Computed example of a mutant assay.
Amino acid sequence: MKLRDFLIGVATGLAAAIIIKETSEKISPFISANQVLNNVKAEFKKESPIDGSWIYMKAEEFRNGIMTIPVYRGGISRVVNGEMETYEFAADARSGVVVELIKQS
């Protein structure tokens, strides 16, 4: 095999990888984790002030028995009637819709 043929193969492979990556991001891009957290916080603020919040910046797989979707996991804490309430949530990384909300005790 000639060096020229090898380099052409490497260049073709890299070009194909870049095109596939760009196309897949356009088909199903993720919303930023900060935007998802801000949307969830806005909904919680409608009921009462928030004391703290967090979100994992990397999406993970969420299975609900029927399908698997990428989600961001996060949490919200607030004081209601003098008592601390803590919630954990999972929000769809593509749409930002909360798919799971659990009140911690």
Results as ranks from 00 to 15, higher is better:
1 M>F: 06
3 L>G: 00
5 D>M: 02
7 L>W: 03
9 G>H: 04
10 V>L: 13
11 A>G: 05
11 A>R: 04
11 A>D: 08
12 T>V: 14
12 T>P: 01
14 L>E: 01
14 L>M: 07
14 L>G: 06
16 A>R: 04
16 A>Y: 05
16 A>W: 01
16 A>H: 07
19 I>A: 15
20 I>G: 04
23 T>Q: 14
25 E>T: 15
25 E>N: 15
26 K>A: 11
27 I>M: 15
29 P>V: 08
33 A>T: 08
36 V>T: 09
40 V>Y: 04
40 V>L: 10
41 K>A: 05
42 A>V: 05
42 A>T: 13
44 F>P: 11
45 K>M: 10
45 K>W: 01
45 K>H: 02
47 E>V: 14
48 S>V: 10
48 S>Y: 09
48 S>F: 02
48 S>N: 12
49 P>S: 14
50 I>N: 04
52 G>H: 00
52 G>S: 12
53 S>C: 11
53 S>H: 09
54 W>V: 03
54 W>I: 03
55 I>F: 10
56 Y>M: 12
56 Y>I: 15
59 A>Y: 01
59 A>P: 08
60 E>L: 10
62 F>E: 00
63 R>M: 01
63 R>W: 00
63 R>F: 09
64 N>L: 12
65 G>I: 07
65 G>A: 10
67 M>G: 03
68 T>K: 10
68 T>D: 10
69 I>W: 07
69 I>V: 15
71 V>K: 02
73 R>Y: 09
76 I>T: 08
76 I>D: 00
78 R>G: 03
79 V>P: 00
80 V>W: 00
80 V>S: 10
81 N>A: 14
83 E>H: 06
84 M>P: 00
85 E>Y: 06
86 T>H: 13
88 E>R: 15
90 A>S: 15
90 A>H: 11
91 A>K: 02
93 A>K: 07
94 R>K: 13
95 S>W: 10
95 S>N: 12
95 S>I: 14
96 G>E: 05
97 V>G: 03
99 V>G: 01
100 E>G: 05
103 K>R: 15
104 Q>L: 11
104 Q>Y: 06
105 S>L: 12
